[in-house]
């Protein structure tokens, strides 16, 4: 047990180091911009005095390393700076005292919650379906069912998300008006209503994620079927379904859990396109909007959040696969 804690601590430390380096990369990339923020905010006709004033106000006259640590210190405390678009010049004129209106954190917080809700709904739908289908495909391998599933999953993995999204909109929202095609989520909505509105984007993501998880489940189980203990179970006369569920599945759990965590990581980042299609007010949509209007602080913050979620889930995948595999738990 001590060794497992040590491994987990090691991985965690590695993850934090990675996140730290990633934050440097993001900050450095943004600072490659020609001109500077002040010029960008004021636009073409700015007077040098005004530019200088804003530079001082934002602390842009300090060296990059100082600014990086200030930004990092702020980010750790949940203060991600002020959004350019929302900033309105009141905050620069000093009249906006502590309302927090234009702060990036205030903008991101509700959207982050929405994105988590979408990812959660998707995971709840996708994980059971993909594991069931994967087990069935492994059970009836090389049958017509398996081949059809193979072709369908390969197609849905390789299609762009917006294609799947529009196909679903076409059939489930336009031709057969079952679900709403716009996900206008707002505060104080009833949970059931919110769930219905989230369902279509969640189904789109489910299609993408399920295909991958199902293929991995099938492959992980089939990999094991050649092992001697499966042969033994078969010779005992156990039914094929029982062989797979009782004997193969527990041993295939490590790769399956791994792929589930990786797909959840994909969910957090892959939501961008889907959120845009369904106008879902999540963090991905905010990110794309900010990219278009070059709202640097928001882009920076969103990027950091996505990277953190991605690293965290990859880390979880690592740790879970160590926990679920005794051979990794007791390295020789």
């Amino acid at each position: 047990m001590a060794s497992i804690l040590r491994i987990i601590a090691q991985r965690l430390a590695l993850g934090i180091v990675t996140l730290f380096v990633v934050s440097i990369v993001i900050f450095a990339a943004v600072n490659l911009l020609p001109g500077d923020f002040a010029q960008l905010i004021l636009g073409q006709g700015a007077t040098p005095e005004a530019v200088e004033a804003i530079r001082q106000d934002l602390g842009l006259d300090q060296p990059p390393i100082t600014r990086y640590f200030q930004w990092l210190a702020g980010a750790v405390q949940g203060d991600l700076g002020n959004s350019f678009a929302q900033a309105n010049f009141a905050s620069f004129a000093g009249t906006d005292v502590g309302t927090g209106q234009g702060s990036v954190a205030a903008q991101i917080a509700p959207r982050f919650e929405n994105t988590m809700f979408l990812a959660g709904v998707t995971a709840v739908i996708a994980v059971p379906i993909s594991i069931t289908l994967g087990v069935l495909a492994a059970l009836y391998r090389n049958s017509a069912f398996d081949r059809t599933a193979n072709i369908l999953t390969l197609s849905s993995i390789s299609s762009p998300e917006f294609f799947l999204a529009y196909i679903l909109i076409l059939f489930l929202a336009v031709l057969n008006p079952i679900l709403p095609s716009l996900s206008n989520i707002y505060d104080g909505m009833e949970l059931s209503d919110r769930f219905i509105k989230t369902l279509l984007p969640a189904l789109t993501l489910t299609l993408v994620v399920t295909a991958h998880m199902m293929r991995m489940t099938r492959a992980a189980i089939i990999n094991l079927l050649a092992s001697p203990y499966i042969e033994m179970a078969r010779l005992k006369g156990i039914s094929p379904m029982r062989v797979i569920v009782k004997h193969a599945l527990p041993n295939a759990l490590a790769p399956i859990i791994n792929v589930i965590a990786l797909n959840l990581a994909y969910l957090i980042t892959g939501v961008v396109v889907v959120e845009v299609v369904f106008v879902y007010p999540g963090i991905g949509q905010l990110f794309v909007d900010s990219v278009k209007i070059r709202d640097i602080p928001v882009v920076q913050a969103c990027c950091l959040i996505f990277a953190a979620a991605y690293i965290l889930l990859n880390l979880t995948a690592d740790i879970l696969s160590i926990i679920s595999n005794p051979r990794l738990r007791h390295p020789k």
Binding site: T18, L19, V21, V22, V25, I26, A29, V30, L32, L33, A265, I268, T269, G270, V272, V273, F287, V288, S290, V291, R294, I296, V299, Q300, C302, C303, F306, A307, Y310, I311, N314
Partner: peptide, 15 residues
């Protein structure tokens, strides 16, 4: 590789 590729691409495209 620790930064999701689409996100990183969007960030760099802004710049």
């Amino acid at each position: 590789m620790a930064i999701p590729s689409l996100i990183f691409a969007l960030l760099l495209m802004t710049i």
